[in-house]
Amino acid sequence: MCLAIPGKVLEISAENASLALVDVMGVRRHVDLGLLEDDRPAPGDWVLIHVGYAMSKISEQDALEQMRTLEMLGEREGAMQEVRGYGLEEAPGKTPATKSPA
């Protein structure tokens, strides 16, 4: 239930600054950065992900250790299944017809 899955931020969505493409153990998924709006991660940063939302920024070393922990807990498969299940898409169908600079 309370799986926290480490991932590396690859890029921030151009249309939605609170959406990022994240590499999680080789799987690329969109992850919501809304809970880190006070301390936004940049590409290259590592985050802990829970139910599709990045919860906290962590160091690369801690991220790798967290992957090991998931492995040891026998939860790697569950974590991968969760991540593969994320269907978050970019700019959820409400991109305005004319792009007005904010």
């Binding site: 919501d32 139910v51 599709g52 939302y53 299944q81 969760e82 991540v83 299940g85 994320y86 269907g87 978050l88 898409e89 959820p92 169908g93």
Partner: peptide
């Protein structure tokens, strides 16, 4: 439906 994120439930609604 199984969802892995509450956001995906929202997507399902859309």
């Amino acid at each position: 439906r199984i969802v892995y994120s509450p956001s995906d439930a929202l997507k399902l609604a859309r």
